Computed example of a mutant assay.
Amino acid sequence: MPQTLPRLSLLSRLRTLAVSLYLAARGTPHGGHLFIRDGFPRFPGGGDVHFGYRVNMQCDLAPVWLRAARGASIELGDRTFINAGTEIIAAQLVTIGPHCRIGPFCTISDTNHHPVHEGEMARVAPVILGRNVWLGRGVIVLPGSVIGDHSVIGAGSVVSGTVPPRQVWRGNPAVHVKDVRCSPDFVRG
């Protein structure tokens, strides 16, 4: 079943154009057909944000924050959807694969920002979300986490470590609940 283009209001089309022009001025091209709905995303920091084709951000309740520190990178895969209030923080690298669905008010961070013990450095470790991953509302993904293709993380969960492909995880800390039955080319609508 072919996916249809989201319908945007005139105001959302103007916001999308403004964000596209802003990104071009920053030297941050996008893969085409960027969609911004009801608000503006925020891009603090001096790092790189790479957009795939047809990335869609919902900013109605709160803006989407894409914070890439200088020298760091956030990579958003083709046809990824990011819901309101989500914050993606990269001190090094956060990669979100194609067809991912990120629920509202999620936090994905590759750093814990501050050391836990005296004499230690803040933890920084890349975060990778595979293809067709779905994060429910309020999920927190901690540094060094890897979430495999087609996996689902339940609302309010905290992910630390590796989630294998095709699994549902939930809780704090998130644990395996059941497997996802799907073909390799499955895409959530």
Rank of each mutant, 00 (worst) to 15 (best):
A90C: 11
G119M: 12
V159Y: 02
N132M: 06
G119W: 13
G136N: 07
H99Q: 07
R70H: 15
A69F: 10
R123M: 13
F81N: 10
W65T: 10
G171T: 06
I89K: 01
R67A: 14
R67S: 14
R181I: 15
F81R: 10
V127Y: 04
T107G: 08
F81Q: 11
C182V: 13
L76K: 00
I140T: 08
R181L: 15
V159K: 00
R170T: 12
V141D: 00
E87N: 12
V139M: 04
G138T: 03
P143H: 02
L61I: 14
R79M: 07
S151E: 06
C182K: 11
V146T: 09
L61C: 14
C106Y: 04
G97E: 05
H117V: 14
W134G: 02
N132A: 09
P104K: 06
K178L: 13
H150Q: 08
M121E: 15
G130Q: 01
V141R: 00
E120D: 14
Q58V: 06
G154C: 06
A90L: 07
F81P: 04
G138Q: 03
S73K: 11
F105A: 13
S183K: 14
P126R: 05
T95E: 09
V180S: 10
P184L: 10
G138A: 03
P104F: 08
R181C: 14
G71D: 03
R123N: 12
